[in-house]
Amino acid sequence: MSNPTVANNTVEIVVNGEPRLVADGATVEMFLTAHEIDPDTVVVEANGVILPRDRFGVTALSAGDTLEVVHFVGGG
């Protein structure tokens, strides 16, 4: 994770256990929006640490980052 920078090349990250290509420097919020995910309905763990929602827009992704993006589904 780093501060947002101008995106100019693509890096590989791991999201929910699967490799994904994102623009280097894209923020978590940009990643969610690109996948039509409403940031208000998910919780994100970045490199093993829960990312507060107000950090989604200022946390940039870099090569090798690991994200868990979870939400509430039906369960007993």
């Binding site: 256990g17 979870v70 939400h71 509430f72 589904v73 039906g74």
Partner: peptide, 17 residues
């Protein structure tokens, strides 16, 4: 409710929220 990974390629699956 259960906590589960969001399916990245099926974003029509709405959160229970």
């Amino acid at each position: 409710v259960a906590v589960r990974r969001v399916k990245l390629d099926a974003s029509d699956e709405a959160s229970l929220l």
